[in-house]
Amino acid sequence: MFTFTPQNLQKIEALKSRYPSPNALALPLLWMVQEQEGTISLEAMEAAAPFCDLPPIELYRIATFYTMFKLAPTGRHHIQLCKTLSCALCGKAEILAHLQERLGIGVGEMTPDGRFSLEQVECLGSCGTAPVMQINDVNFENLTPKKIDEILKALS
């Protein structure tokens, strides 16, 4: 059974007063679910729906529309490599190939031990330090294969 933590319930109450309609809570609610559980389950969408006064299908539509909402489990260290222009020009392909080789997984996959998952994303907003990747919420900049090795080692 999915339930929001008491802290999140407090947050929801606080957010409610900020919007003219509870419908506007749909995105914050999905974020809270993802932060709390790691992924957004169907059960959680059903549980969250009454808080924003929407039918569950609407939350499902929103969750499938935005790629940053995770419907399937990701690794403990979720690697998101930027694929947009600056990073692509500064050697993203080489970084990707190196990551795939080191982790033994392709894009969109997870290592069997559940530690790493790999994904390509659009611009991470750090073009000046391309190529860039984000592991969970932390940015890693000016990547080189050597730097990747160090980062992965530190995470092991």
Binding site: P56, I57, R61, T64, F65
Partner: peptide
């Protein structure tokens, strides 16, 4: 009854 929706993009 809200059964159907457009999902993905």
């Amino acid at each position: 009854t809200h059964e159907l929706g457009i999902i993905g993009r």
